[in-house]
Amino acid sequence: MFEPGGVFYELFGPMAPVLIVGAMAVLLLLLAVSMLFKQRPDPMEKLAAQTRQQKVSKNETLRSGGTRNEKLEKYGAFLEPQDQESYSEIQKKLMQAGYRGRDAVRMFHAAQVILGVLALGLGLAYYYLVLGPENATTQQMVMYILGPGAAGYFLPKYWVSRRAGKRHEEIEDGFPDALDMMLVCVEAGQSLDQSILRVSKEIQSSYRELAYEFQVVSHEIKAGKDKSTVLNDMGERCGVQDISSFVTVLIQAQVFGTSIAEALRVYAGEMRDKRVMRAEEKANKLPTKMTLVTMGLTVPPLLIILVGPSAMGIMKLGSLAG
């Protein structure tokens, strides 16, 4: 289409790709501006939002990381999903990755837009200044212009997924030790609330993310929030199956009136066995992962040692015969 002889080339000349991309960018910009100006706040919704904000407690401020950024407030309609389900899903993923601020969703979408636009600009610069439109095909144009833009747009999502994976691994590694310390505290006569706070202080230097979650639980219980709701919120924030099972065990022990110490003892033993099994699984995967590396480092030198002298002998015989 954009090559000599194509429809767009005949209409707009050699600058056809530039004009098309520029028109698309202007169109997107006008669409975004129209969305910002057309959406007028409903007075009833504004009043309801103010009422909800007044009812926010101190522990909610602790979980959310403070007040909102005023600079991002005016772009909230553009940087936040208007669907409550989508907003909750993105917020949950960011919380599981350790981003708990009230502006986390806005910052996430702002990073996607900024990186996407910057990468798109770099792709355009490379295509027109280095590669040259005359020497490139349509496929190359799409690859060098839209490819970096898509990579920049999805880079924050990849970063959040990696961050969430590392956080989950840290929580899983520290959870058995935290259960053992919690069991000692409960058997020493402390309540569950006191033991959670004490364990959070003890593991602060080793497992910071798990300690933070225990601190949030302790503060929310002190604020008067229902213990079952607090524990369920912790399992949702962590996103780890072991935490969710632990929350279920504690809730069942509280509902049926069984001993919390006995439940902690049994579950702590299971968590220690599970941690050993995870370590054994990683150890069993290691030989398979090392196979290609071992072959790549040992086979070429071995071939040189075995085949090298024969090759040299054949070359000498060929030279003598010639």
Rank of each mutant, 00 (worst) to 15 (best):
G13C: 02
E80Y: 07
Q39Y: 08
D83I: 03
G22T: 06
E73A: 15
L11C: 03
L29I: 09
E60F: 07
D42C: 08
N59Y: 11
Q54E: 13
Q54A: 14
Y87I: 00
T61M: 15
I90L: 08
G66H: 05
S88L: 12
V18D: 03
L28P: 00
T51Q: 09
R40N: 11
L36E: 04
Q50A: 13
L29A: 13
N69D: 15
G13K: 05
K74F: 12
P81V: 02
M44R: 15
K92G: 06
A23Y: 03
L72N: 03
G13L: 04
S34W: 11
K93S: 08
K46V: 13
L28M: 09
L31M: 11
M24Q: 01
K38Q: 14
Q91S: 13
E89C: 01
M24E: 06
E73I: 05
G76A: 15
Q54R: 13
V21E: 05
K46H: 06
A23L: 13
M24Y: 09
L19V: 07
A25Q: 03
Q91G: 08
V56E: 14
E80W: 08
L19D: 00
M44N: 10
S86W: 11
K46M: 15
E70R: 12
S57F: 03
Q39A: 12
A23E: 03
F78M: 12
L79T: 08
E45S: 09
P17T: 00
V26R: 03
A32P: 00
P17V: 02
K92N: 07
L28C: 08
M35Q: 14
Q54N: 09
K74T: 08
Q91P: 00
S34I: 09
A16M: 03
Q84D: 12
E60T: 03
A48D: 10
E60N: 08
K38W: 06
A25E: 01
Q91R: 15
K55M: 14
A77W: 02
P81K: 01
F78G: 01
E80S: 10
A32C: 09
G65C: 07
N69R: 10
P14Y: 05
M15Y: 05
Q50I: 04
E10H: 10
R63Q: 11
L79A: 06
M35E: 13
K74Y: 11
M15N: 11
S86M: 14
E45G: 11
G66L: 07
S64E: 14
E70T: 03
P17W: 03
P81A: 04
V21N: 08
L11E: 07
K74E: 14
Y87K: 09
V18I: 12
K46F: 10
Y87P: 02
K93W: 01
S64A: 11
Q53Y: 10
G22N: 10
G76E: 14
Q39C: 11
R68I: 10
F37Y: 11
Q91A: 13
G22W: 02
E73D: 09
L27S: 15
F12I: 00
L36G: 01
A49Q: 10
P81N: 02
